[in-house]
Amino acid sequence: MASVLQNSPAKPVARASGYSLKYIFGVIVLLGVIGFVMFNSFQSNAVYYYTLSELYAQQNELIGRTLRVNASLDKASIVNDQKNLILKFNLIEGEHALPVVYRGVAPDTMSSGESVVAEGKLDGSGVFQADSILVKCPSKYEKSPEQY
């Protein structure tokens, strides 16, 4: 059972190689299943990160695909319709400006936000329809929890 019993003659001895093929097979099958599930849902859920210049460079192919954009927030452009819970703002990068529409409760940090990560789809008219937004603040807070 332990090193203290190593010399015990009564102890049944079986060495590591004692695992038969069928257990190893079982383990492989299990790992295969987990790996497959992982791979599969990874394929359908992977979301690419784009900067605005990358986004505009391949705008036509990206329409309708789920993606993430990360850019500076143009604070002056924020329009928060609280009655209908529609939040509109522009993300800017160089000469590019991307209008974003988010339906839902605006994050509390919106007004003090510096940059925004938005996940969603680009529609045909060039407006980004966000499903979730993550606001990043300029502060030193190391931990700025994610908000949906």
Binding site: M1, V4, L5, A10, P12
Partner: peptide
Amino acid sequence: ARYQTQAADVLRQ
């Protein structure tokens, strides 16, 4: 029976 033998062995040590 097996555990009894093992116990005896440890006690002896």
